[in-house]
Amino acid sequence: MGIFDTVRFDPPRACANCETAITEVQTKVFEPGLREYHVGDLVQGSPILSGVIREELYCPGCAGSDHRKPQFVWFSLWHTLLVGVYDTPQEAEARLQEVDRAELLNYLARHQQAALTWHDRFSRLYGELQNYQDYLRASPEEQQDRENMRFFRIREILATDDPLAALVSSNKPQNPEDETEVGNEGL
């Protein structure tokens, strides 16, 4: 079977055979890594720098049907940036001709903001874990002092029955599968 990457559709596509909403396509044409891509993402291990790649769609509504006609989508890649997913190769080629610098700057800004969000999230989690470790290593007198400034950032977490579970929960993404941030702070 192998390892697939997934390209998500926004908005979903309707199956030409049964009208079922198709929200994604799995592909093996990129470097295998179980990655998830959206339009605007840089693709890892693309076989081409710029151009169009065809991929067959799978429709869960048509699965097992003998009357199913194959369906395809075409990825438009511009310097490994996924700039679109289209129903025809002509649309995909036309999209490559329309890419402009302002659009590329927008994609770059979005990815930089996402990287900052991840950095901030990691730093917050690391700091709270470090505070919790310090708390566990502290003397019983220091642990009992509720006003101890060393543990101020995690005082609500320490008040729970399971502080480690509370710490993980307070730092978890909204959707663990795609690791979307809770509340999309800063986006």
Score class of each variant (00 low, 15 high):
Lys28Phe: 05
Pro11Ser: 13
Leu116Pro: 01
Glu128Tyr: 04
Asp120Gln: 10
Ala165Lys: 15
Pro140Gln: 15
Gln143Thr: 00
Arg8Glu: 10
Gly183Met: 02
Gln97Ile: 08
Ala102Cys: 01
Gln144Arg: 15
Val29Asp: 15
Tyr58Asn: 08
Leu34Thr: 08
Asp145Cys: 02
Ala159His: 02
Gly40Cys: 09
Gly186Lys: 13
Val83Ile: 15
Leu57Asp: 08
Asn175Glu: 13
Asp178Phe: 03
Ser46Lys: 03
Arg150Trp: 00
Gln144Met: 10
Ile53Ala: 05
Leu34Asp: 14
Leu96Val: 07
Tyr126Asp: 07
Cys59Trp: 11
Glu24Arg: 11
Pro11Ile: 13
Asn184Gly: 03
Val52Ser: 15
Glu56Met: 09
Glu93Asn: 08
Arg150Thr: 04
Lys69Tyr: 07
Asn131Met: 07
His67Trp: 12
Gly40Tyr: 09
Glu19Gln: 05
Ser169Trp: 05
Ala166Cys: 10
Lys28Tyr: 06
Ala159Tyr: 02
Arg124Tyr: 03
Glu56Arg: 13
Gly45Leu: 07
Thr80Ser: 04
Glu181Lys: 05
Pro163Arg: 06
Phe152Leu: 14
Tyr126His: 10
Ser76Tyr: 08
Arg110Ala: 14
Thr80Val: 01
Tyr126Ser: 09
Asp10Phe: 07
Ile48Arg: 01
Arg146Tyr: 02
Leu105Lys: 12
Val25Asn: 01
Trp78Cys: 11
Tyr58Leu: 04
Ala14Tyr: 07
Gln133Trp: 07
Thr23Ile: 08
Leu129Glu: 03
